[in-house]
């Protein structure tokens, strides 16, 4: 699927996740966040950076991983990305939706 966001055409799947990370920019992340009523701050970007780094290293994301990340604790994570934090933050980060149940 094609989608135009931040004046750029990107490829996304049916749930709105980017299928090609090379198309991702910070502007696109900001716009996706707005669709979820999230105004990005430095703390949000810290988490996004961490997520992109982990995905790049091939680490499977989980809520336990967030707890151990040292960047953020679980309470803050839920507060920053309401309505399913890992689901929402990975979408903003332009990486695939995590498949883990934990």
């Amino acid at each position: 699927m094609k989608k135009v966001i931040a004046q750029t055409e990107i490829d996304v799947n049916e749930e709105g996740y980017l299928t090609d990370f090379s198309q991702w920019t910070k502007e696109i992340g900001t716009e996706i966040a707005k669709e979820h009523n999230i105004e990005m701050t430095d703390s949000h970007w810290q988490v996004i950076d961490w997520i992109q780094e982990k995905v790049n290293e091939g680490v499977a994301l989980s809520i336990r991983g967030i707890k151990k990340s040292g960047v953020i604790d679980i309470k803050q994570f839920y507060a920053l990305f309401p309505g399913g934090p890992l689901k929402v933050s990975t979408k903003i980060a332009g990486v695939p939706k995590p498949k883990s149940c934990i």
């Binding site: 336990r64 991983g65 707890k67 934990i102």
Partner: peptide, 15 residues
């Protein structure tokens, strides 16, 4: 990577 019970309770509460 499933946490032990005590850690799971902590995660649930924080969530």
């Amino acid at each position: 990577d499933m946490p032990p019970v005590s850690e799971f309770i902590e995660i649930l509460s924080d969530s």
